[in-house]
Design a protein around this nucleic acid. Sequence first.
DNA 1: TTGAAAGCGCTAACAT
DNA 2: ATGTTAGCGCTTTCAA
Lengths: 371, 371
Amino acid sequence: MSNEKHAGMPAGHHPEARDGRRSSATIREVAVLAGVSPATAARALNRYGSVSAATIRKVSLAADQLGYRTNPIAQALRRGHANYVGFLPGDLENPFFATVARALGDAVEEAGYTLTVSSSDERLDREQKIVDTLQANLVSALVVAPVPGHDRSHLTRLAAAGIPLVIVDRAIPGLAADTVTVDNRGGARAGVEHLLDRGHRRVGFVSDVLEIASSQDRLQGYRDALSARGFVHDPDLQSVAQPSRDGGYRAALALLDRRDPPSAVFAADNLMTLGVLRAAGELGLRIPEELSLVGFDDFDLATAVRPTITTVAQPVAEIGRRAGALLLRRLEGWDGPAEHVNLPTRLIVRESSGGESATSEGSGGRPGSAS
Amino acid sequence: MSNEKHAGMPAGHHPEARDGRRSSATIREVAVLAGVSPATAARALNRYGSVSAATIRKVSLAADQLGYRTNPIAQALRRGHANYVGFLPGDLENPFFATVARALGDAVEEAGYTLTVSSSDERLDREQKIVDTLQANLVSALVVAPVPGHDRSHLTRLAAAGIPLVIVDRAIPGLAADTVTVDNRGGARAGVEHLLDRGHRRVGFVSDVLEIASSQDRLQGYRDALSARGFVHDPDLQSVAQPSRDGGYRAALALLDRRDPPSAVFAADNLMTLGVLRAAGELGLRIPEELSLVGFDDFDLATAVRPTITTVAQPVAEIGRRAGALLLRRLEGWDGPAEHVNLPTRLIVRESSGGESATSEGSGGRPGSAS
DNA sequence: TTGAAAGCGCTAACAT
DNA sequence: ATGTTAGCGCTTTCAA
């Protein structure tokens, strides 16, 4: 505030006096004040090459006086790469991704990168556009939960350009990129087996569009469980949601509002769990007496409602942390083959499935504290 | 894919052959192929100055052949401003902000801007750092839900630099910036009056830290309602959450787990609502028989659980849209005084407050469809 | 209508 | 250890 004059003084040499925008001092101004060349100033400020301690002091002082802030745009243009990581979740409105974003942000910031998030809203065209934009803006690395669809060219293009890419939550079989997923298949199987073990013979399955890899895997787990216990898969007990705001609700309703509804439902993600709850409520089905429920992905809600909800918990924050670690390793130059991290899930039995020790466990198990 | 060769050909003139990264063709290459100067190519591509139709055709064709994509970094450096809008919510894990983000994104993208989101996680230091980084990166405009705290220098700095700033959700009294809020005070008052009208004499209030302007306003509304109905404010019935993961739960527990709990609670945002639900569930309090509940901010959950939850609905998407409209107007050069948009709320009576027409309304009212 | 030239702010070769 | 020079890719005078 008090040294605005410095910044104002050498501004006159601009051809166009840009509206009112005053940008901060340039490195050239810092160099002049410190009595060195711009190159030396850059060396001092960024600590590379050879600079004497005395020079570093002089330059730092000058920079402080002028309130110098490096211009990341110019830096990026010159260096050919910027200094931030992008995160592209499928749907920011799913708290799952918000939690991943936070953990990922913490991880990359520790290494000096900034995180920027943009939701693809499950639309391929948006995903493509955003990836291209980020690439053009020289993003350092990118974490993506890819939308369903077969056109991956934007992702392969990115990888081909040497930009570290980490796929999270939804594996893409053919793609050679670091990937962090959870054991969707095993987790779903455990959840469904839990229901079968409690005597249910007709267990429904409600999921998002099956083009999403994780949904596919969870469906597989569901079928695994049925086979393992000697049941045949009845396609009639499977309901797929439209990708709309209340898709989960409608899918659940289709499954439950009929003559022969299942006595238990497995919901493949937490938006689906919400849909099942709403549908069951409207139909007057009591949980767990008339309908048992197990959901995939633990969330705050699970312990807020009565009955509390049995869930297959994923280590959500860990997904973000691992993704961060993988991309940082690449940014540091590591060049091994693509790694696929598959994290374990954990069944948390609560009341909605009839419970095991409903009162004791039902009140514990803070969501989010999963390792 | 098929024209990679073009891009590869003129790469040799680089001093340092940057690792493996192949960036796209430059405008100079396009110009050469089209047989014009780079200046003309720029004019043709960006449609400014004078260019003949024939030239535009030639240049466009060349650009297509080379798969030319403008380099936004160079553009930004040269022009002095980039082409994207930042959104800085207090907490991305609150679905409220995710919804605002979506609406805002749609609005600015229509005008050719990109939206980038970074959560401050309710920490002032993060907010400051992110704002400064965005400013240094020449962000076009910024939408912020400011964290509590008195240091606004980073925001005034931004505004002083002429970058359009829109405050959402939480007004800052002294700041001359476009602002979009909802009628927090009136909404809270309506919610609490609803409870008082149903015969409750001791209504509790659970909120986030009161430094957040919207929490303050909601508290005011709560007190307004009490006064209007002739009750005295009992500070003992007011519980403030710590800014932690289960802060809402603890605050609710403190209020409810004692000899003389209130018979009704008003929760000041949806994380608080969740906390009250959980606490009530654990204490075995039946809703609404033993505890009535009204929450501020309608959300999916409200119609998913039984009893369905009475809420004060805010036009969440509208907040994002309006914020977008305000900043676009500034970006187009409009230069009027700061505008403060205050959107109305709407009480949606459901079962958790005893209902009015519990069965009919309880099943309707899609959250999110509020105007 | 078009081209030549300069320069946004920074940094990396290549001197010295 | 430091300075000089050149140039990242783009746009915008200015002159033709």
